[in-house]
Nucleic acid binder design. Sequence first.
DNA 1: GTTAAAGTCTCCTGTTGCTGGAAGGTCAAC
DNA 2: GTTGACCTTCCAGCAACAGGAGACTTTAAC
Lengths: 136, 136
Amino acid sequence: MIAIGQAAKVSDLPVKTVRYYDEIELVKPSGRAANGYRLYDETDIRKLVFVRHARVFGFSLATCRELLDLYENPSRTSKEVKEITSQRLEEIRQKMNELRHLYNELSHLKNNCHGDARPNCPIIDFLAETKECIAP
Amino acid sequence: MIAIGQAAKVSDLPVKTVRYYDEIELVKPSGRAANGYRLYDETDIRKLVFVRHARVFGFSLATCRELLDLYENPSRTSKEVKEITSQRLEEIRQKMNELRHLYNELSHLKNNCHGDARPNCPIIDFLAETKECIAP
DNA sequence: GTTAAAGTCTCCTGTTGCTGGAAGGTCAAC
DNA sequence: GTTGACCTTCCAGCAACAGGAGACTTTAAC
């Protein structure tokens, strides 16, 4: 049983984050010392690391909770896990498409901008465009 | 001079957002009616639309403020605008790379997962991996 | 034995960009 | 005169923490 500082170091998370995960009841320490210090055992550490890994993939804390439940549930099915993973992959794909779109449009604007000392700028012009809503 | 509801409709922003932009002094209404109602003129509307467009590209409100300053500044240089745009493009590129990376790793895990009724799951195994920090 | 540093605790605030709701004032139509 | 659509302010909350205050304990050095 180790205190929060060590737990944070071993699981490679900030102390603040570990405390936060306790607060929201995502990963609670197995016990408390007589002085009130949180005490983490190896199982707790495994959960912290598990959550850290899941967070890297961008899973929300809500989804991390689900995954953690599955992790701990010996009668889970890999189907459930795969389902959650598919959803995340779909999110990532959508986000990537969005960004690609923005990137193309914005770099197009950039390429048309002289980038010199004059005020004339197609980027500003585009952002200021009001054809859609205000009559000129 | 129109009230906030019309201003919101014309600029295609939620009323709440327009009010918020006033509060943070990003786009303030030109005046107030005797009854306290916010009053927006055409210039205000143009600014609201400008911000909406910039937001679509993912510019933060802080950056929108800069862009709005440049928009209003007749002695701006297109160089400044292009610079800000380049930064945003770089951000987008980084984000895209990140996502591509995550996507590849995660879809690799997914492909190795049977997705059946058994509990065995390489995705869970990967997330639970503690080689880095805990001795087995 | 004392003291200084490091670790821990709880509680509160701030971040970004809004959104929703409560309680109340105002205005036009019927 | 009253309904309904506006408008006002203020307060709470979302995600996922980070920073800091103020108070305690523990550990290490001298």
